[in-house]
Nucleic acid binder design. Structure first.
Ligand SMILES: [Mn+2]
Ligand SMILES: [Mn+2]
Ligand SMILES: [Zn+2]
Ligand SMILES: [Zn+2]
Lengths: 141, 141
DNA sequence: GTAATATTTGCAAGTAACTTGCGTTTATTA
DNA sequence: TAATAAACGCAAGTTACTTGCAAATATTAC
């Protein structure tokens, strides 16, 4: 019987008609096991030296395009990625000293977007938003 | 009598003991006249060809370090900058088609940060947050 | 105002994070 | 199982930004 991650990752690829290669499946499994967004350098380290950097970037970009992954920028000079497929909307906390990142379940009231929309003259609706909190984590305080 | 921008920009530099060079003053005046964050390419274009790219980046970095400027990333592959000195906290709306950026006066309740902090296990306080709304502007709809 | 000192600037070279081209391999479809 | 389409791996390229260092400019001390 297949593992939880195996079936889920398989489904992510199948849902968009993407080839289910060994590499892509391993990458999605690794991403699915993370608690917060990770960098391409982290992924490359975990996947092992056999992995090619270009292939990784190409897979990540494809997955972002199809909405399987979400991509974030926390001002570290490189992107972070996390599974978006079937994951509820949420925000992030980022430590400005050690770079530690934590998921925060979304506590948005619909008012948050509504009142922003009222204030934004040139916009009639928003499709998404991103909210990041910065500070020092307990280890770095 | 000096203009509004001239005295304000002068004060920004003076407050941090930074040299008030012609270039820096021109840069801050230009930034002070913008309604939303702008890219380094935009600044370079507006300042004219006489300006050196390295000097611009160095000035921008210095100003960000001292809190005179705030730096943002909207996923365009380059940073955006705006005056932070004496400017109240606010958020941004970004058009995913044309890149148009708009300031949104902050409508945060203190609860926004409070409830995020409660949910973030590894953090005792946040020093700042950034909230961006993405969608299509009225021109692009 | 002028000289001494500290800061900033401009140019050339360098770096990090990606991207592109193209021939080979692997997966999907018939 | 063969034909077709997609993904991979390597080398080379691009972009946004950084660093080193000598020359120019600004600040401070007299
Ligand atoms: Mn997350
Ligand atoms: Mn702004
Ligand atoms: Zn930390
Ligand atoms: Zn637009």
């Amino acid at each position: 019987m297949e593992s939880f991650y195996a079936t889920r990752t398989d489904e992510m690829l199948r849902a968009h008609g993407l080839s289910r290669t060994q590499g892509r499946i391993a990458l999605l499994k690794l991403l699915a096991s993370q608690k917060a967004p990770v960098s391409s350098a982290f992924l490359l380290r975990k996947l092992g030296t056999s992995w090619d950097e270009t292939t990784l970037y190409r897979a990540l970009n494809t997955f972002v395009t199809y909405g399987i992954l979400a991509q974030f920028d926390f001002g570290h000079g490189h992107a972070h990625y996390e599974i978006a497929h079937d994951k509820p909307h949420h925000h992030h906390a980022v430590c400005e000293s050690c770079g530690h990142i934590e998921d925060i379940p979304a506590h948005d009231s619909p008012q948050l977007t509504a009142s922003a929309l009222k204030a934004a003259r040139g916009f009639k609706r928003f499709t998404r938003h991103s909210l990041e909190f910065y500070g020092l984590c307990t280890k770095c305080t």
